[in-house]
């Protein structure tokens, strides 16, 4: 079942997926640099670069670390971000499933063929989520700002010409689920870390990326 928590997760994670970035060693440092008028324009320009690609495809690795259990849960697969078809996440291991996000719906397909779909018409939260996705695709900073406090750091990091964006949800309710998000961006998305409400990190690493201009 796709829950609100999950929507929140999707909501934030897709912000990241559609931004392009690189990840640095000390990600907390980004929150010392709130976005200024000057850096805001810089983010907008960088996001506009991302929106130039018709399709971005590659592999992903998700690592959920649960501190209390001292345990990591790792899943891997492929992803595709297309201006026309939306976003497809194809998890292959250890648990095959497919998640498709489009303007009008979100669909989850399990290995046994079971399909669950929620349309934006029926779900205002998802409709809002879709709207922000569009804003991300088109580099609409004002829409992002409506939902997150933005932080920005010009980052030498692991990626050439990269920068780091920090996002803190404005809503206290959402902060219960996601404390903050840090993403490293160059010309492509490389790594994203989401810290949940309990302080557990979820790391998304993207590799073997191919773009269609």
């Amino acid at each position: 079942m796709l829950s609100l928590r999950r929507f929140c997760g999707l909501f934030c994670a897709l912000h990241l997926a559609l931004c392009v970035g690189a990840f640095a060693a000390d990600r907390a440092a980004v929150f010392e640099h709130p976005v200024t008028a000057a850096t805001k324009a810089e983010i907008a320009r960088s996001l506009a670069q991302v929106s130039n690609y018709q399709i971005v495809q590659g592999d992903f690795k998700q690592t959920k670390s649960i501190k209390k259990l001292n345990r990591d849960f790792v899943s891997t697969g492929t992803f595709s971000i297309s201006k026309k078809s939306g976003v497809v996440w194809n998890t292959q291991k250890p648990f095959p499933s497919e998640l498709t996000v489009s303007d009008s719906s979100i669909t989850e397909r399990s290995a046994n063929g079971a399909v669950r779909t929620i349309s934006t018409k029926d779900n205002p939260i998802f409709a809002e989520f879709s709207k922000v996705i569009k804003a991300m695709l088109f580099g609409n900073i004002s829409e992002l700002e409506a939902n997150f406090k933005l932080f920005y750091e010009k980052s030498p990091s692991d990626y050439k010409d990269g920068f780091r964006v920090g996002l803190v949800p404005r809503e206290p309710a959402m902060r219960k689920v996601i404390a903050n998000i840090v993403m490293d961006v160059s010309s492509l998305l490389h790594r994203v870390v989401i810290i949940d409400g309990d302080g557990n990190p979820v790391i998304y690493e993207f590799s073997n990326q191919k773009v269609t201009e």
Binding site: K64, T91, L99
Partner: peptide, 15 residues
Amino acid sequence: SKIYGLFSFADLNRL
């Protein structure tokens, strides 16, 4: 699907 699924923020502390 909650443990390994993408962007699932289910509480795994009580696993």
